[in-house]
Simulated scan of single mutants.
Amino acid sequence: MASTEACDLIVFPELTIPGYLSQDLLYNPEFIDRNLEVLEEIVAASRSVSPGLHIVVGYIDRNRGVGKPFTNMAAVINAGKLIQTYQKQLLPFYDVFDELRYFEAGSETTVFLIRDWRVGVAICEDLWNDKDGDDYNYDNNPLEQYRNTNVDVLLSINSSPFVRDKCSVRLEKIAPASADGMAIVYVNQIGGQDELVFDGGSFVVQDGELKHFSDGLFDDSYEIVDLADQRKAVAPAILTSIERLTELLILGLRDYVQKSGFSELVLASSGGVDSAAVCKLACSAVGPEKVHAIRMPSVFSSQHSRDDARTLHENLGCWDYEVPVDHEAL
């Protein structure tokens, strides 16, 4: 689509090819080799698209120098060639992040030309060294480095997982960095990866103003943004709502099931609030016809809870089973 629409650039999130974060799977040589093979396949495929289209995609490379064994990279591809690479500089090692365990940090910026625009590349944490947080005590500041090189556009590829209100924080913290006219294109991962769920929320800011915001979680289409368009955008209120949290729970569960190779779900259903919520989320994630809800009443179960569980399953349309717990046999 990007080629057909004569786009200049298509941007994919951080570590798009191997997934974020693959943890000790990185120590499997075949995993790294396959990730590099896919990168070569993308380079080869770029020969058949518009020659003006540039592709930025995240991948893992081996560190051929001293230090940690791997590097967190972004590739810049155009017309069948790998024209530039960028090595992530700021590696988080707090909360759910453990990148310092695997990756060696870079120190250089990467700038390439698209038409008359100077375009820079950063990866996730690289934009967070001047955000006044205790977790961001790094020696260098890639964002300041790019300001000093006078880039027109800074691409930031991310795998930033969901935290309540984090989407609003990203906008509040990053938008002011574009106040001097530099456009920032922030592209974030969407979907579940093991215990993490990525909430997307990709955006474009320029002159301190929001120019574009992507809020869809279940839409696999790609949005086209014209940086010359002067219209402003507004982030939807849903980003901090219970509805959004529900969507993210469904997204995380659905992706975990699909990526793990499961086809159906089995769960215990008591008729209580907790199991009812789980059953509803499961049906929304994979479809009620693929959910097997098992009631396991005992002598301690009330008739009310038994009836509630059965009614819930009927209303949701999932499979219903009863396997009584026989305490005497125990």
Score class of each variant (00 low, 15 high):
residue 255 D to G: 03
residue 136 Y to C: 14
residue 206 Q to S: 14
residue 214 S to V: 13
residue 127 L to V: 15
residue 120 G to T: 02
residue 114 I to L: 14
residue 322 E to I: 10
residue 213 F to N: 03
residue 72 N to L: 15
residue 103 F to Q: 02
residue 239 L to F: 09
residue 101 R to G: 10
residue 190 I to R: 02
residue 139 D to F: 13
residue 157 I to T: 05
residue 152 D to I: 06
residue 232 K to W: 07
residue 156 S to E: 06
residue 24 D to E: 12
residue 60 I to L: 12
residue 164 R to G: 07
residue 328 E to W: 11
residue 69 P to N: 06
residue 78 N to W: 03
residue 22 S to L: 11
residue 313 H to W: 06
residue 218 F to L: 07
residue 26 L to W: 06
residue 130 D to Y: 06
residue 165 D to C: 08
residue 195 E to F: 09
residue 230 Q to E: 15
residue 184 I to R: 00
residue 241 S to R: 07
residue 228 A to P: 08
residue 47 R to M: 12
residue 62 R to V: 10
residue 309 A to S: 11
residue 11 V to G: 00
residue 308 D to V: 10
residue 207 D to V: 06
residue 191 G to D: 01
residue 30 E to H: 10
residue 208 G to M: 02
residue 71 T to D: 07
residue 309 A to L: 05
residue 17 I to H: 04
residue 278 V to F: 11
residue 153 V to I: 15
residue 50 S to R: 04
residue 221 S to E: 14
residue 153 V to C: 03
residue 200 G to S: 03
residue 97 F to L: 09
residue 137 N to E: 12
residue 66 V to T: 13
residue 179 A to V: 14
residue 120 G to P: 02
residue 62 R to A: 09
residue 273 V to F: 11
residue 83 I to V: 15
residue 72 N to W: 07
residue 76 V to H: 01
